[in-house]
């Protein structure tokens, strides 16, 4: 499954992306938790896995068709099951993405970017974080920006997604030397430097899952 000839993704493409990511999170549960243990409270992988395991049966029960409606279900399920800071943040991401794509049975790059814009600004309102604060935004914003640049340059969707993954990778690695200014890691002050942010890492996995699913 991938972009069709007119550059559109279907409901099934989105559902497959979420299912793939649920598997990726399960596989990386320990890794994300270990990253969190270094600068947070050692639960990021466990919480994300609990949330996405709860999402899977909701996806099965969903009537295929409306991409936005499905993403809203993903968002509200995450808000209701994850807890911590990642629950509201990831929940808001999918909820806003869903609101931006409500009623659509297919989504192209342009709507994808609109969805990301809406999701990112809502996450920033909720978490009050800025780029460079050592949060998940440090992978998400560069990925969105790279996707937009590639799209504006007229790149094929698959290539644009690869550019987004590269930017997310770079953004994630760039969190290593940063001193955290938000979340539990900020209590560490300078001692938070030298560790990769777990939220930026799970976002990187999310963008990768999209690339692997849609352009793999």
């Amino acid at each position: 499954m991938s972009f069709d000839k007119s550059g559109q993704l279907s409901y099934d493409d989105f559902a497959a992306w979420i299912r793939r990511y649920a598997g990726v999170i399960a596989d990386n549960k320990q890794y994300l938790t270990d990253l969190d243990a270094a600068i947070g409270d050692a639960d990021h992988g466990i919480n994300m896995d609990r949330g996405f395991q709860a999402v899977l049966p909701k996806l099965d029960a969903q009537t295929p068709g409306d991409v936005g409606a499905m993403l809203k279900v993903v968002g509200s399920t995450l808000i209701s099951t994850v807890g911590g800071a990642s629950g509201p943040l990831y929940g808001t991401f999918f909820l806003q993405f869903g609101i931006a794509t409500a009623g659509q049975s297919s989504v192209g790059l342009e709507q994808l970017l609109k969805g990301l814009d809406a999701a990112i600004s809502a996450m920033q309102r909720l978490g009050k974080a800025e780029p460079g604060d050592k949060t998940l935004l440090d992978a998400l914003i560069p990925a969105r920006d790279a996707l937009r640049r590639a799209s504006e340059d007229g790149e094929q969707p698959a290539k644009a997604l690869s550019a987004a993954v590269d930017a997310a990778d770079e953004g994630m690695r760039a969190t290593i030397p940063l001193v955290a200014r938000k979340g539990r890691a900020s209590y560490l002050g300078d001692r938070s430097a030298g560790h990769q942010d777990p939220g930026a890492t799970s976002v990187d996995l999310l963008i990768r899952a999209a690339r692997d699913q849609w352009a793999g």
Binding site: D41, A42, D43, N47, S80, V82, G83, G84
Partner: peptide
């Protein structure tokens, strides 16, 4: 009460 050391959910 949330999960251990994890804030509860809005529900």
């Amino acid at each position: 009460p949330g999960a251990v050391f994890t804030s509860p959910v809005p529900d």
